[in-house]
Write a protein that binds this DNA or RNA. Structure first.
Lengths: 397, 397
DNA sequence: TTACTTAGTCCCGAGAACGAACTAAAGGGG
DNA sequence: CCCCTTTAGTTCGTTCTCGGGACTAAGTAA
């Protein structure tokens, strides 16, 4: 009924080799040193992986002395996944190579009132030509998501949606994740920071937290919904409550504040243009937001203690103007020394981050990085899964 | 240099067996079914564990039909660890059986101005008679701790202390952890909730968060320091900043508020007694705190999304009086449906929780539950360690 | 050309698990 | 009372993987 157990260990070692090669090309000898496996074992496993088309041999290395080794690397395009962002403004669909390269991307907007069914049908239509091939399709929503169900997405106006029936139409594996959490993955999976917070700031505010290389999800998938932390404000939030942080820090408030200063900007894009042209009121409004964000980051730091904060969402475009007041304010409000100069930078993948994160769900799965995307527990679990509680280092030392 | 690799797999399977037995007695046949291992393999590993004195055979089971099996269980006392809490008021030292039983506990107070050196010397003196034997000594501090260094403990008045030289005197392995985080472990390790937040509320306020069976630590060990989330208040906090949540929700504020209502209570103990006697002002002050806490828990829920909140610290003693207003207020302020009836209860281990948590650090290590206490990554990592991110299942229950 | 160093392959022995065959110990039916 | 069925647990032969030593390959330095 069960495969010979020794094959399990082979799988683990294959995984180890792929994990190391994800960071760059290596020779068999390098792999032997890094994994601790005997040269012979590495040779055998690498042969297998070459045969399967997962690896490719590349150029030779020139060590100071001795025979050169052949570099091995992940074969480009050997595996890839699709990712989609169902955002407030529009939809993004892209294909992501297993090495983190965006192979292609499409974007389209949609009538504001379009419901989930319509939007998924359109997505299905765009996805179909690319099947089979991808490992899966991971998509993201700006809302609280747990086990393929959407509990609440205030800024889309959707709530309590079981998406499983709709997902069943897709002719490939699907996964669903919150946009901020997925975006955080996009940074972690390919840039390897183990502790970070990804701030998605547009109309709404959400945070994706990764701690010790694991995504913080919570029991209902609501961890990091700091936009709905109740502050002292009196504004009505899209979620129906009063005083959510999002009403103070969301970009709606920025536009509002700019108007209250006497500024005239129809929308955020206009405001951004004014700022780029050095218009004083626009700069002042943005500076004010930056200060508030700095204080918020000090709070974020005591809540999650990241080593890096990434700014995404529409706010990323304002980042050049936000940066200075934000850093000053963070420095002034930080609880720990260590937080005073907390690195803050905009997202690497830019506005593609959520979709890239969606796709990385499947790449993480392929690489069996359970911390990034653990499968739900199986009922009659495999053997090791029972007790592999993550990275355990030897008892020694 | 490295042990034969097949032994690694044996270790994993031994671990699997112990992990299952942690939840209760099982027969060899049960273990075979649960782990997926062949009966023969289980037999061999169990024999080995019996020989080492880790397991014991117990009574027979009587299945509906067929030969009865012999139940196996962890031998009581076969492994244990020491835990200590260095609190604001005093010190607790205890021994914890590997099955979660407190074998003995000692407590003592100390002159308020005693420094870390003095307090550790006293602790060493109390620990010495019990060495050798324990797996290690884990102790906790009400402050931000990372890698055996204390960054900041406002309520002790300590900061930037490298405790490694002091720890070197202890003739057994030591570990250091924040009190709220350790307390969270005490609940998770033996009662198996995978997503919980442990609220330590006394003078200070701290939260220990466990998500998917992993302790949230952050880059500097400061995750969960919500007591130092900047709110709108104007009170000076012990950390030197103004407006920390702790100044509003800490029990100091409770006493303060009671006085402002006209109440007369010298200290918290007196206030508690008054409440127990039904004194109106005391009850009103506590009710007021309960409401504020309910709102706070709604925020805690969006930050970490736990499935359970445990209340510890001095506030646990006030819990009967806090409970009703707290639940009402939480229900009124919750962001998600799922949070409206978030279970809230006092700690199982009561005031011993931090010390029990400290000891569990070593028990978790023994059971190789890396999520609870992962060692720092090694530079030249072991083989599996590098990449086993596997999905880890529930701990206890 | 030779000595040395590093890369990579080949092959055999060791250790672990699997699974089938077997023994052990209960209950139920005739 | 005996035999059949069922479940528990052991024994033993087979299979799989790794480790490690012997070996070949391919460079540099003298």
């Amino acid at each position: 009924m069960r495969k010979g157990d020794t094959q399990e260990i082979r799988r683990l070692n294959r995984r180890a080799i792929l994990a190391h090669l994800r960071r760059g090309p290596l020779t068999r000898a390098d792999l032997s040193r890094l994994t601790g496996l005997a040269k012979s074992a590495v040779s055998r496993l690498v042969d297998e992986l070459l045969q399967e088309g997962l690896l490719e041999e590349g150029t030779l290395t020139s060590p100071p002395v001795g025979r050169p080794g052949t570099l091995l690397h992940l074969r480009p395009g050997a595996r890839f996944a699709l990712g989609a962002e169902l955002g407030v403004e529009g939809t993004v669909l892209l294909a992501l190579d297993w090495r983190g390269e965006v192979l292609w991307a499409k974007e389209w907007s949609h009538p504001r009132e379009a419901g989930p069914k319509k939007r998924l049908e359109r997505l299905l239509h765009e996805v179909l030509p690319h099947v089979p091939g991808p490992l899966g399709l991971g998509f993201t929503l700006p809302g609280v998501v747990v086990e393929d169900r959407l509990l609440l997405a205030p800024n889309l106006g959707w709530r309590n949606l079981d998406l499983r029936p709709l997902l069943a139409d897709f002719p490939l594996p699907t996964a669903l994740e919150n946009d901020a959490k997925a975006s955080a993955l996009s940074e972690v999976f390919f840039h390897g920071e183990a502790n970070l917070a990804y701030l998605v700031l547009s109309t709404g505010l959400g945070v994706g937290v990764v701690s010790e290389s694991r995504l913080l999800r919570g029991a209902s998938g609501a961890a990091g919904e700091l936009g709905h932390w109740l502050s002292q404000g009196h504004q009505l939030c899209a979620c129906g409550r009063v005083g959510c942080l999002e009403t103070e820090l969301g970009l709606g408030a920025l536009l509002e504040h700019h108007r209250s200063l006497g500024g005239k900007a129809g929308d955020l894009e206009a405001l951004l243009q004014q700022a780029k042209q050095g218009e004083a009121l626009a700069l002042e409004a943005i500076r004010h937001l930056g200060e508030a964000l700095g204080r918020f980051l000090a709070n974020l730091a005591v809540a999650y203690d990241p080593a890096l904060v990434v700014v995404g969402g529409k706010a990323a475009e304002f980042f050049p103007f936000l940066e200075t007041p934000l850093r000053q304010s963070l420095r002034a409000h930080a609880f720990l020394e260590a937080h005073r100069d907390l690195p803050v930078r905009p997202s690497v993948y830019g506005h593609l981050a959520p979709a890239v994160g969606g796709a990385s769900l499947f790449l993480a799965r392929f690489f069996e990085l359970g911390g990034l995307w653990a499968e739900r527990p199986r009922r009659n679990g495999g053997r090791y899964e029972e007790v592999v509680f993550g990275d355990r280092r030897g008892l020694g030392a």
